[in-house]
Design a protein around this nucleic acid. Structure first.
Lengths: 179, 179
DNA sequence: CGCACTCTAGAGTGAACGTTCAACCGGCTC
DNA sequence: GAGCCGGTTGAACGTTCACTCTAGAGTGCG
């Protein structure tokens, strides 16, 4: 998926079609809404893919703290092995289309909520009260997204591994004594 | 600064020059390196500006935990009052030029390190051991960047306020009993 | 075979892109 | 006044953009 690597504006239809092995005409046949519709559907697809990555991370441990840390490590590995290209499929496209394309922004918002909900349920089943779990899931997602940015910019997986430890500490803090 | 709002690819030289009240020719007189050089210098300028924002947040409290939370709240306020446009001046441009422009990536990396160093010194003067402070600063920066993304996409300052509380908890955890 | 339909092909559209350039301006020194 | 020079101007260049359009290949049905 080119959009997560180069963003929306930096990715041309010609390049997408060439990469997919089809002509531009075919692209417009399947996406009559043009580039914007293509981006929305690509975002949705990428969101589901990233959901699976998160799910496999969360399922790797019973303890929520360990599970969250596993997610961060899994993301770090995915980034590293892909040469710092395959990360969050939403961030780049979302950041540059905010305020310009409501459809894309809405798709990005749904993707983020989807991931937050996934984290929230893991936390609640781990014994964290509902409200605290929702907030915690928000911060976990924030940290993962931000740490990915740091990793990609510096071409190092350090930020994500550090984040993994700190997130585990934070979650453990809320499982021990919820406030 | 348009680059932080629309990213690198989405911002044209014509728009930049028009916004600055000069012609395109003048832009190329001052930035003979073209758009790439302009982006690099804009990133540097924006980085210093964001450093000042962080500094004012950090200076607002003696306690590192409170200071970090203040940064998040300050960022939230800045975003809100600017209509979700004026946030991190690096994220959008960095994300889409990774792997495409080494100069821009290097400038982005320096900006992030600049901010991390600022956070680190605040933490160490607050009594946190050097190594732990560096790691903690990394995660704090990650969380701030990610929470900003969430806020901008959802047009709500919730994620940053939530992050403020959690970051304060995390910092307090390390001031109380460093491991 | 003809017909209807889905999908592909790729040239063509006007607009916008980053960039270049010859001409020009106002203020400076001789 | 003559010559120069940092800075400005706006048109022009070639390229690429998102998108459209017409022609036709492939398939299933009668």
């Amino acid at each position: 998926m080119l959009l997560q690597r180069q963003g929306y504006e930096g990715t041309s239809i010609k390049r997408i079609s060439g990469d997919a092995g089809v002509t531009q005409g075919s692209v417009y046949h399947f996406f009559p809404g043009g580039k914007e519709q293509l981006a929305v559907e690509a975002l949705r697809y990428g969101a589901d893919e990233f959901t699976e990555l998160l799910r496999s991370g969360l399922d790797s441990a019973e303890d929520p703290a360990e599970a969250v840390a596993a997610c961060a490590v899994l993301l770090a590995d995915t980034l590293l092995t892909s040469g710092w290209t395959d990360g969050c499929p939403v961030a780049a496209t979302a950041l540059e289309t905010i305020g310009a394309s409501p459809d894309i922004q809405r798709a990005a918002e749904q993707a983020l909520r989807q991931w937050q909900d996934l984290l929230t349920t893991k936390l609640t089943t781990g014994g964290i009260p509902d409200e605290a779990a929702v907030d915690l899931a928000s911060t976990i997602l924030s940290t993962l997204e931000g740490a990915e940015l740091l990793c990609r910019v510096s071409a190092s997986d350090k930020a994500l591994h550090t984040a993994a430890q700190h997130l585990a500490q934070l979650v453990r803090l809320h499982t021990a004594r919820p406030d």
